[in-house]
């Protein structure tokens, strides 16, 4: 399932079990900041404004529960190049209802033992950022998100560390300076 979206837009995949097209599409049509780009079985791909965050999608979710008595799993596609969304989309039926970015996808992938996706994500981030950057980000997580401690344990100048961490966050969309981001990366590579 691949839809076309403009550069200024992001893709959001919804998994809505057994939805009814006759009510879903008129419902979605009321939201001016989104458009349906494709559907496939229980999946709907939406194009939404680039600044769309989890809050807006949760808002859509609340309304869908209220109007259509249906909940969904949403995945916000990351902005990273060559990311194979189809692997994540395939596991959406296994996730609890909610809105997920890559950072939030990693813990259930690891905890539910979805080894294929886990391996893909590990390889993908190595490819995307390079081993050095990943090792730096992991060192930062292991140092309790403390840049001073991390630069000491990695024998790295603090500026280099910060540059790599910024680069990692920018490239992957995983904010390594937050607990959630560091936890996700740590789970992915160290479990």
């Amino acid at each position: 399932m691949q839809g076309s979206v403009g550069l200024e837009n992001i893709r959001v995949y919804l998994y809505i079990r057994g939805f009814d097209r006759e009510t879903l599409f008129p419902f979605l049509a009321e939201f001016s900041d989104l458009s349906v780009t494709s559907t496939d079985g229980d999946y709907v791909c939406l194009s939404m404004k680039n600044e769309t965050g989890k809050e807006e999608i949760n808002h859509l979710r609340e309304k869908m529960v209220e109007e259509l008595y249906q909940d969904f799993v949403a995945f916000i596609e990351p902005n990273s190049p060559n990311f194979d969304t189809s692997l994540v989309v395939a596991i959406m039926p296994k996730l609890s209802a909610g809105v997920y970015k890559v950072t939030e996808i990693i813990p259930p992938v690891v905890l539910k033992n979805l080894t294929g996706v886990k391996q893909y994500l590990k390889d993908y981030y190595y490819w995307l950022c390079g081993i050095e950057t990943i090792e730096t980000a992991l060192g930062f997580a292991e140092a309790g998100l403390n840049a001073t401690k991390a630069s000491q344990s990695l024998y790295m100048h603090r500026n280099t560390l910060n540059y790599r961490l910024d680069n990692f966050t920018k490239t992957t969309g995983i904010d390594i300076r937050t607990f959630a981001g560091a936890y996700a990366l740590y789970l992915l590579y160290k479990s």
Partner: peptide
């Protein structure tokens, strides 16, 4: 009915349309 509060209203619709929307969908 799951009831969400003011946040679940449609800002571009009137009060009438807000209340009628679910019924129109059906």
């Amino acid at each position: 009915a799951m009831v969400f509060q003011s946040y679940a209203l449609y800002p571009h619709m009137t009060v009438y349309d807000n209340m009628a929307f679910g019924l129109k969908l059906r």
